[in-house]
Amino acid sequence: MADKVEGVAETAPGMPQLDFSTFPNQIFWLCVTLVVLYLILSRVALPRIATVLSERHGAIQRDLDKAEEMKRSAVEAENTYNKALADARAKANDIVNEAKVEMQKDLDKAIAKADLEIAAKAAESEKAISAIKDSAVQSVEEVANATANNIVDAILPEAADTKTIKAAVAARLKG
C-alpha cells in the first residue's frame, strides 16, 4: 500500500496523522503549550476572573441588601407614622370626651343651683301668698263684724251685743 501511494503522489505520503516520525515533535510542543497554558490559566486568568465575578456578585448582593434595608426602614417609617396617627386620633378622642364630661358636670351643677334657687323663690312666694291670704281673711272678718254691728245697731240699737254678733259672723264665715 505504502509504496503504491508514494508512486502515485510524492506530496501525500498516505495519512500525515499516521506518520510516526512527526509524533515526538507534536507531543513535545503539545506538552510545552499545555504547561504554559495551565500556568497562565491557573496563576493569572482564572483567579482574576474569579475575583471579578465574586466582586460583582458581592456588589449585586450588597445593593440588594441595601434595597432590602431601605424597604424595611420605609415600612418601619410607615408603621410609626400610622401609629402616631392612631395615637393622635385617640388623644383627640380623649380630649373631646373629657371636655364633654366636664361640660356635663358644669351643666349639672348649674341646673342644680338653678333648681335650688327656683325652689327657694317658690317657697318665699308661697309664704307671701299665704300671708296675704291670711290678712285678707282677717280683713274680711273685721269688715263683716263691723258691717254686722252697724246693721244690728241700725235695726235694733238696744239689742246690740258685740259678742253674739261676732260669734254669729264667725259661724257664718266658716259655714
Binding site: 516520525s21 512527526t22 515526538p24 515533535n25 507534536q26 507531543i27 513535545f28 510542543w29 503539545l30
Partner: peptide
C-alpha cells in the same frame, strides 16, 4: 530538514 522533536514546525 527532517522533523526533529525540537524543530519549529507548523504545529509549533
Amino acid at each position: 530538514g527532517p522533523v526533529h522533536w525540537y524543530s519549529f514546525t507548523n504545529v509549533t
